[in-house]
Amino acid sequence: MRWAEGFIAVDWGTTNRRGYLIGSDGSLEQEMEDDQGILSVPPEGFPSAVAELRARLGDRPLLMAGMIGSNRGWVEARYVPTPAGLDDLAHQLTWAEPGFAAIIPGVSHSTPDRADVMRGEEVQILGAVATGMVSDHAMVCHPGTHNKWASVIGGRIASFRTVMTGELFNLLKEHSILADLLSHPAVADSSFELGVEHGLAHDDLTSELFAIRARTLLGRAPAEQAASYTSGLLIGNDLRIGLRAAPVGEIIVMGRPELTRLFAVALKVAGREAREIDGEEAFLAGVRKLAELIR
């Protein structure tokens, strides 16, 4: 095994992939990002896609996270049930190439009335905990296509809930009657904050979405504000769900800065303290710790 010489870490999602060449001393030597997510690769095409990654970043062992381990990815990786820590992930890797290409398991949470899964976010959350960026008792909000609200207890992911906020916004933008209005950029302005306030205070999401178009048609709201209001409305509704598990205390908002900024503003509207953490930094912290555990 050649992990001590460095390795390639890959965050391989549905629509994008990000690769990082980690040196023997843990330093980031090179990185890349493209749109070759798992949906862009046919089932038989993953060996070629992995070879292309190595051609760009070097012939090193691979440590992969995200949808690459789904039933649509290269090799399906198991889910580790909550409570889950980094040691659980390291001990249940799925080897696509024995000793040379490992897929990190996802995490599942199951109760009599609810079931949930995550792939990829667990590396960021537990990496941030392991390196002290996040306390071992915390509530983490991880914005994305499928936003996660994860409760960390004793340094482990104890429970979590997924809200399809990002995917819903994209579907509305591409396929709904609001599509023309949502072509404008969504920014954290006063319209966004009004949407957040409505989403926090009301349970009429599907009705209020149509009202956005009606107000525009009747001249009661400018079309340029619709995207920001819609984003705020969806995020406010998201917070109303997620904050039930966090009645007090700081909320860690982790992920891509353009998304964490929106959620941090929304949390301020909700009267909550938020601290943003860059998801890429947390991911690198997680894969470095995992590589140490499997050497």
Rank of each mutant, 00 (worst) to 15 (best):
M1H: 15
W3H: 10
A4T: 13
E5D: 15
F7S: 10
I8A: 11
A9K: 05
D11S: 09
W12Y: 01
W12N: 03
T15A: 15
R17Q: 13
R17Y: 04
Y20I: 09
S24C: 14
S27E: 15
L28S: 10
D34S: 12
I38F: 07
L39Q: 14
S40M: 06
E44H: 15
A49N: 08
V50P: 14
V50M: 15
A51G: 13
L57Y: 14
L57G: 12
G58N: 11
D59T: 10
R60P: 14
R60F: 15
A65Q: 06
A65H: 12
I68R: 07
I68Q: 03
G69H: 07
G69A: 05
S70G: 02
G73F: 06
W74V: 07
A77D: 02
Y79D: 13
Y79P: 12
V80G: 01
P83A: 07
A84H: 07
G85I: 03
L86I: 13
D87V: 11
Q92Y: 08
A96F: 05
I103V: 15
I103F: 06
I104P: 01
P105M: 03
H109W: 15
H109Q: 00
H109G: 06
S110R: 13
T111W: 07
A115F: 07
A115C: 05
A115H: 08
M118W: 07
M118P: 02
G120F: 04
G120I: 01
V123Q: 05
I125G: 11
L126M: 02
G127W: 04
T131D: 03
V134W: 06
S135A: 10
M139Y: 15
H142A: 15
P143W: 04
T145S: 15
H146C: 09
K148A: 00
W149H: 13
W149S: 05
S151T: 09
I153E: 12
G154T: 00
G155L: 00
I157C: 00
S159W: 05
G166R: 13
F169Y: 15
N170L: 14
H175D: 14
A179P: 09
D180S: 15
L181W: 04
L181K: 02
L182T: 02
S190K: 10
E193D: 04
G195Q: 04
V196D: 05
E197P: 04
E197M: 10
G199Q: 09
L200D: 01
A201Y: 09
H202E: 10
D204T: 05
L205A: 02
E208T: 12
A211Y: 11
I212W: 02
A214M: 05
T216M: 11
G219M: 01
G219D: 01
E224V: 12
Q225W: 06
A226K: 01
S228C: 00
S231N: 09
N237P: 01
D238M: 06
D238W: 09
I241S: 14
A245R: 11
V248M: 09
E250N: 07
I252E: 02
I252Y: 04
I252P: 04
G255K: 13
G255N: 08
P257N: 08
L259E: 12
L262Q: 13
A264W: 03
A264Q: 08
A266E: 08
L267V: 09
V269L: 14
G271N: 01
G271D: 00
A274V: 01
D278K: 03
A282P: 09
L284G: 13
L284A: 12
A285N: 12
A285K: 11
V287C: 12
R288E: 03
R288D: 12
R288T: 10
L290K: 03
L290E: 06
A291Q: 00
E292W: 10
I294N: 02
